[in-house]
Design a protein around this nucleic acid. Sequence first.
DNA 1: AAAATATTCAACCAACTAGTTGACAATTGT
DNA 2: ACAATTGTCAACTAGTTGGTTGAATATTTT
Lengths: 110, 110
Amino acid sequence: MVENNDKHLDATFSALSDPTRRAILSRLALTDLTVTEIAEPYEMSLAAVSKHIGVLARAKLVSQHKEGRIRRCKFEPAALNAVADWIEYYQRFWQENLQSLENYVEKLKD
Amino acid sequence: MVENNDKHLDATFSALSDPTRRAILSRLALTDLTVTEIAEPYEMSLAAVSKHIGVLARAKLVSQHKEGRIRRCKFEPAALNAVADWIEYYQRFWQENLQSLENYVEKLKD
DNA sequence: AAAATATTCAACCAACTAGTTGACAATTGT
DNA sequence: ACAATTGTCAACTAGTTGGTTGAATATTTT
């Protein structure tokens, strides 16, 4: 079952509000990576990156699979559904505004 | 011009990560409201609500129009576009996963 | 068995956040 | 002119966040 309450939405939006975490996701979208691999391009400590991954994991945006001493991290796009649904609902107002504008322009022609 | 850099995305995701702010947006989506009207249902002080509105305004999710001593607040759905685009890009991986699953199920039939 | 590797944990710090209260500025009503 | 209303600002507090370092744990390699 997909958790879909406010708390989860909070956690997901919050996880995505950090550029480091979005960058991590963008790389994980291409291929699964270990914690060390994820950390490699960053100046910050491994522990810091591990924490970022923890935040993403708590939001279910990544899952971790233990393989011996390494932990392979996997992007979980399903976690974006709740956010996408939220956004989509409110974007409807954008569409409606465009429609209103269109109607207005149309009316000007007469 | 629509600002579309990482900082703006940070601010938007961050603004949306708070349930009070999402609730404010959901009411503003229905109709424009003054600061006092927005604050009315909440236990918290007017100043606190004013700060929340400030966060939403900095993320361009709401605009404020001064009318005498009141400030009317308006939902600006256009600010969601950057977020929607970001999400949409990554949701593609969700679709691809579904597609892969479909292909797999299809193959099982043979 | 000992050393190296991969990762997390715990304690700490600085910066930020969400809330408070009280004072202030601008506008409107009496 | 005075009082009431609307909203923000400034200063403060408690809790959270993003980073650090050093120690601890689990696993693999030698």
